[in-house]
Design a protein around this nucleic acid. Structure first.
Length: 820
RNA sequence: GCGGAUGUGGUGAAAUUGGUAUACACGCCAGACUUAGGAUCUGGUGCCGUAAGGUGUGGAGGUUCAAGUCCUCUCAUCCGCACCA
């Protein structure tokens, strides 16, 4: 009797979601003798609802997780929420909600969406970074880092977002604007806590080579550029006696850095950043005219974007002495000199640097050429920035400019007037935020003891809930009791720090927390044993937008935790897969453009399996994905057909044994396509991650199965295809597998080589590389026989021609080269 | 400016080492079944051409018996960084 069921996504999906929940189907095992896979997707911010980008992200990671579970591996596939941050507070200001209530309501809603999509996350390890239990350990790490000198507090010029009323890290300033709200940032002088990420600059850079095999090149390059290492010469420029007197001997010299020591004899002026100490001193002591001081103040208040529009500067009326020639060199201020790179002062060589050239032209400063091209002359209308031959450079005349660099640095070092130095663009990471909804920084200000750490046994320092959020200032600062405390050292009345941490701190170690069994979460952050077993993350999946921020910080934390003795590896993420954006009508889906597609609506109309299938089929994961409604229909149709045609299966609990030799041509072909699909699926998960081709292979196999009617071939085909498709369309795959195979097929499947052995093969015949005919030959036919057949098939093309060469490419084609 | 990528049918895209370009799907066309169909099934579908045939992977060269794939130059688009001394 024929079994026939109509496909109903709702009933099937609900049934299996309930089944997986009841059976704790996706919890990792604590049996550390098993081979493991740690599959991690970047956890979401609980913004309210999932968007298609999330669906894509987790569809990919879920496919990996389910595949490796079928392979019999111990799989950790956790999910959490990166739940601190400004939007919770912004919502509070807008709607009068409480950040905590808003956040946890959103988490509940989004969790339901996850499970409605059938994602196989560990439910037991779900967490949110705003949970007090998470804050507790984070604060403990912060204290460790402070003790190690990796966290410090300093007054400095900070990026301030006037809209969000908070400080931003350099990485969070995009084109001079806040990365979150796009408000132009301003500089503000205030106290801030910093992580000493620069201590790891060199290692963060050199360890990128360890990631070459598993990370996209683009991300590696972006990090490399961000760290921005450059080698060069650092030396002091000394003021002449007149200038020293002008400065009342407060300064004798300043420091400059150059990557072009070869141009040293071409220095014709030097320039300081408007924020430079010497400039500040001169302004404060009225050593400059009123107009000049006003101009400098204006320069300092100009945003970095506006500063780029036009080079501006002014002379300080001071001179320094050239370190080699002793010649007097004027000192200027220039708006293009950055205070936070190098020493905030540069030597200027207009003849060989475009910026210096523009500036010299504008202010009529001398231009002294010291490098000429190997051949020909250089036009004086622009800077000559290429490699050439040195002249006007004393003992170095005639040298190749590139090669001279090292000799010149050696000369500075030998004479103790300068040294070889490396500079980085990377800055220390400012982590304090003047906001409520973040992890409190566990420090106390005491009048007699200074900055004091909270005692670890008092952690977590939790956020008070009875706060008033107005959008102005930090609510913690205004709270009646939060900031009043006793000094942990001397017991006197003291003030608690009200700054909270940048949310990127939480996401810098969450992947370690997931390694810990939830039953131990109270007592420890994680254990050595758990970390040693689960780390590194085998597949990390997320958006390219985190190429610098999150991925750099997480790498930094890993190295710090290693140096604190918590872990013993250098890099957290073995393989990184950066998914492409989800587009509609050619542009990124966004609320402001009004081109979003709501995942809930798709689940409602077609079911989760359809959404997942479409997303994985429409494009390879790293590419952009264009949303297409008829493509979704197509995916849905395939699932219906896949379900309907399962009626051809004969129920069995073992894979059918089939005598291949006795089959018809169509039956043999169907088996071949099925096993081809299996081989491709294994390859896709191991190497290529192109799920679109894996699914195409299954569709081909379905088409081939449909062209024959052998029940055993159908059953064997479905045994394998349902297993291949389970990572993509899990609900319907489990339904079919249960119905016919007692789910025994959801396991490792072996590729049967015998089905690839064929009696005869088709070969293309080409003449001079152009395809002219096709022949069918026996699988074991000799080259001679093949060529004879080919000539016969292409006889028409060989008349009156001289055959020059005959090439047989096994199992592919025959090429005959002719003349005339 | 520097760096990274991507260019293949009407569309999304395949082509693992150089070996029959366009698999799979969408769309479109035709047919079948239907009272009907935006359902289902079957067949067709790169372009030019009635056909024979020609032509075809952004463009121009080159290597090779053979190039989407390798090399040189070039154009276009996208992304990242950007006065970093």
């Amino acid at each position: 009797m024929e079994i026939f069921l109509e496909y109903s996504s709702k009933a099937i999906e609900k049934k299996w979601q309930e089944h997986w929940k009841q059976n704790r189907s996706f919890e990792p095992s604590n049996d550390f003798s098993k081979e493991k896979k740690y599959i991690l997707s970047m956890f979401p911010f609980p913004s309210g609802r999932l968007h298609m980008g999330h669906v894509r992200n987790y569809s990919i990671s879920d496919a990996f997780a389910r595949y490796y579970r079928q392979q019999g591996l111990n799989v950790l596939h956790p999910i959490g929420f990166d739940s601190f941050g400004m939007p919770a507070e912004n919502a509070a200001i807008k709607n009068g909600s409480h950040p905590k209530g808003w956040t946890y309501d959103n988490i509940d809603y989004m969790k339901n969406e996850f499970y409605a999509l059938g994602f196989s996350f560990s439910r037991e390890r779900e967490m949110a970074t705003s949970d007090e239990l998470y804050t507790k350990f984070e604060q403990s790490f912060i204290i460790d880092m402070y003790e190690k000198g990796l966290l410090y507090r300093k007054k400095g010029m900070l990026n301030w977002c006037p809209h969000d009323q908070t400080v931003l890290a350099n990485e969070q300033v995009v084109d001079g604007c806040c990365w979150r709200c796009d408000t132009p940032i301003v500089k503000k002088d205030m106290n801030q806590y910093y992580f000493k990420i620069t201590q790891y600059s060199d290692e963060l850079l050199s360890d990128l080579s360890k990631l070459e095999a598993g990370w996209p090149k683009q991300v590696l390059t972006m990090q490399e550029n961000w760290i921005g290492k450059s080698n060069g010469l650092e030396f002091d420029l000394h003021f002449d006696e007149v200038s020293k007197a002008k400065l009342s001997a407060a300064f004798e010299r300043f420091d400059v850095f150059t990557t072009r020591p070869d141009t040293i004899y071409g220095v014709s002026y030097t320039a300081l950043a408007p924020e430079h100490d010497i400039v500040t001193y001169m302004c404060e002591n009225k050593l400059l005219s009123q107009e000049s001081i006003a101009e400098i103040t204006a320069m300092k208040n100009t945003s970095s974007i506006d500063r780029q529009k036009e080079k501006k500067g002014l002379s300080l009326g001071l001179d320094v002495l050239h370190p080699l020639t002793g010649a007097k060199i004027p000192v200027w201020i220039a708006n293009f000199v950055l205070m936070d790179y190098g020493s905030g002062a540069v030597m200027a060589v207009p003849a060989h640097d475009e910026r210096d050239f523009d500036f010299a032209k504008k202010y009529d400063l001398p231009i002294n050429a010291v490098i000429k091209p190997f051949v020909g002359e250089h036009e004086a209308s622009a800077a000559f920035t290429e490699v050439g031959i040195l002249f006007n450079s004393a003992a170095f005349d005639g040298m190749n400019s590139k090669e001279s660099q090292s000799s010149i640095i050696d000369y500075f070092e030998a004479n103790k007037i300068g040294k070889r130095t490396t500079n980085y663009k990377l800055k220390d990471w400012g982590v304090s935020r003047q906001r409520y909804w973040g992890a409190p920084i566990p420090f106390i200000h005491c009048e007699c003891c200074g900055l004091v750490m909270e005692k670890k046994e008092n952690l977590p320092i939790a956020l008070p809930e009875d706060i008033e959020i107005t959008g102005e200032g930090n609510p913690l600062d205004k709270h009646p009791t939060f900031k009043h405390c006793k000094c942990p050292k001397c017991g006197a009345d003291a003030t608690r720090e009200t700054d909270t941490m940048d949310t990127f701190v939480e996401s810098s170690w969450y992947f370690l927390r997931f390694c810990a069994d939830a039953s131990n979460w109270e007592s420890e952050a994680f254990s050595q044993e758990q970390i040693a077993y689960w780390m590194g993350v085998d597949h990390y999946i997320g958006g390219i937008e985190h190429a610098i921020l999150h991925l750099l910080y997480a790498r930094f934390f890993t190295k710090v935790f290693r140096d604190l003795g918590y872990i013993n590896f250098d890099e957290p993420f073995d393989k990184l897969l950066t998914q492409g954006m989800v587009l509609k009508d050619g542009s990124k889906m966004s609320k402001s453009k009004g081109n979003t597609v709501d995942p809930d609506a798709i689940i409602e109309k077609y079911g989760a399996d359809t959404a997942r299938l479409f997303i994985l089929f429409a494009a390879p994961p790293t590419q952009e994905l264009e949303w297409n409604d008829s493509g979704v229909e197509g995916a849905h149709k395939f699932i219906k057909r896949f379900y309907d045609r399962s009626s051809n299966i004969v129920a069995t609990q073992t894979i059918p044994k089939i005598d291949h030799a006795g089959l018809s041509k169509e039956e043999k072909f169907a088996r071949k396509k099925v096993y081809e699909a299996l081989a491709r699926a294994n390859d896709v998960f191991a190497e290529r991650y192109t799920f679109n081709t894996m699914i195409a292979g299954v569709m081909e196999a379905m088409n081939a199965l449909n062209a024959q009617s052998n029940a055993d071939v159908w059953s064997e085909g479905y045994w394998i295809l349902a297993s291949i498709m389970e990572p993509v369309i899990p609900h319907v795959a489990w339904e079919i597998s249960e119905q016919y195979f007692a789910c025994k097929n959801l396991s490792v499947q072996r590729v049967l080589e015998e089905v690839f052995v064929e009696d005869s093969i088709m070969l293309g015949v080409s003449i001079n590389g152009k395809r002219r005919a096709e022949i069918e030959v026996a699988a074991d036919a000799s080259d001679t026989a093949i060529i004879a057949l080919a000539k016969e098939a292409a006889a028409k093309w060989l008349e009156d021609a001289v055959i020059v060469k005959e090439i047989v490419v096994p199992k592919k084609l025959v090429n005959i080269v002719i003349k005339g």
